[in-house]
Amino acid sequence: MKFKLFLILFVLYSQSIFSEEKKIDPNSIHKNLRCLVCQGQTISDSNSDFAQTIKLVVKDLIDEGKTEEEIYSFMSDKYGEWIVFKPELNMHNSLLWILPYIVLIFGGFFIFSLIKKRH
């Protein structure tokens, strides 16, 4: 039994290593960019002139060897943060990323304090 567990953990581990080497999939980037001229669609869903142009530029940026994060920051430089669906972790977005975890931790403490009160 222990051997099997070890085997599984090994598989999990090796997967994480292989996944590092994967090339950037342009479509996953398109999905995180807003098509500014469409009603709330992503670049991936749209065939508008704008979306087609952005797809070309994303392809160029990938070929230039840019990372996913670099591509997002290029886009938000040009079009504002509105274009990326994943808000950057910066000063004015820090609350957005941190508050959920604060709620989680606070809730945990609260429950813990209720339970501890038993006699």
Binding site: E81, W82, I83, P87, N93, W97, P100
Partner: peptide, 24 residues
């Protein structure tokens, strides 16, 4: 709730429009 209304707050307070989408 936070993800839904946060863009309203950043827009009203810092004049910065952001999108909170699936990756968040």
């Amino acid at each position: 709730l936070l993800g839904t209304i946060y863009p309203i707050f950043t827009d009203a307070i810092t004049n910065n429009q952001i999108s909170v989408g699936p990756p968040f």
